[in-house]
């Protein structure tokens, strides 16, 4: 086979593999959307779920998912940012650093159901938090932290050393160089990582079944007192998320329209994740443009 033909064959093989991935993705998303979208209505999105009757909505589950995600990001992003910066910029190249990195890798390969059980035993039972949004957020933080830390570390490492030297040579301290030069350059990568981890957290069910619970108590959306038991913002109340709801509908759902609600919820889940992706990318690019006065390189 001459070089030209072998090149053509290799290209064709690569293209067909990519084609398979794209097709699978489109099929999966298409299937979920086609089956789910007909069921989505304003009523579906704004009414509470029903335990036995048909016609229930997903208002509380949708809100719980978003609230839980925000809480998770509030806890995990600063921690991941701190440890990512430390590992990328300050950690000496020694045994302890290697140990930390190995620990992070092990943590990232923990099955989410194990993380959930751990959260259940430690926070729900031992610390007496009960099934609550806070416990769920902590469990998701465990779940999120390793990938987020690795991602931030790598994004920071990707910024050329020349940029750091430039900062230092102008008499700017290492920390200020980090904050003002390196982090902005690493921002698009960091944002992508946060989006990906947010998508994972938003769709996570196993870790939440035992931590944030499987019940969606009726809450009052006009009560902004986070300490009030009936407030929608109370982090100590149990909260069934959308993904848990889908799991529950498909295992023990007794409403006559459980299947349709599950389809509709899945579609909403996918759409929210897509919107989140899109939104974060637009915002990320806008921030990057503002800082750098240029497009992403």
């Amino acid at each position: 086979m001459n070089a030209k033909t072998s090149n053509k064959v290799a290209t064709a093989v690569i293209y067909s593999f990519v084609g398979i991935v794209v097709l699978l993705l489109f099929f999966l998303i298409g299937y979920i959307l086609v089956n789910g979208i007909p069921y989505i209505s304003w009523h579906f999105l704004t009414s509470p779920s029903q335990s036995f009757l048909a016609g229930g909505g997903i208002r509380d589950q949708l809100f719980n998912s978003i609230y839980l995600l925000i809480l998770t990001l509030i806890i995990s992003v600063p921690i991941a940012l701190g440890s990512g910066i430390y590992l990328a910029e300050y950690a000496p190249d020694n045994v302890i650093t290697k140990l930390i990195k190995t620990a992070i890798e092990v943590l990232s390969s923990l099955p989410s159901v194990v993380v959930g059980l751990f959260g259940y035993l430690l926070f729900v039972i031992k610390f007496g938090f009960g099934f609550s949004i806070l416990t769920g957020a902590i469990a998701l933080t465990f779940f999120n932290l390793p990938l987020l830390t690795r991602n931030i570390e790598e994004s920071i490492n990707d910024v050329p050393d020349l940029q750091r030297e430039a900062g230092l040579s102008l008499g700017i301290s290492r920390w200020r160089t980090m904050v003002k030069i390196v982090l902005p350059s690493a921002l698009p990568g960091i944002l992508t990582g946060i989006i990906l981890s947010a998508g994972r957290a938003f769709g996570e069910a196993a870790a939440l079944i035992y931590t944030s619970g499987q019940s969606a108590p009726i809450v009052n959306y006009s009560n902004f007192n986070i300490f009030s038991q009936s407030s929608f913002l109370n982090p100590m109340r149990p909260a069934e998320t959308l993904a848990v709801h889908i799991w529950k509908l498909n295992t023990e759902g007794v409403t006559p329209d459980a299947h349709s609600i599950s389809n509709g919820s899945s579609a909403v889940l996918i759409i929210v994740i897509l919107l989140f992706n899109l939104g974060a990318r637009v915002i990320g690019n806008a921030i990057y443009r503002k800082i750098t006065s240029g497009r992403r390189g």
Binding site: L162, Q163, E165, A166, I181, P184, S185, T292, S293
Partner: peptide, 8 residues
């Protein structure tokens, strides 16, 4: 190597 910051 020229190392301008990724800024204006």
């Amino acid at each position: 190597r020229p190392n301008p910051f990724a800024r204006s």
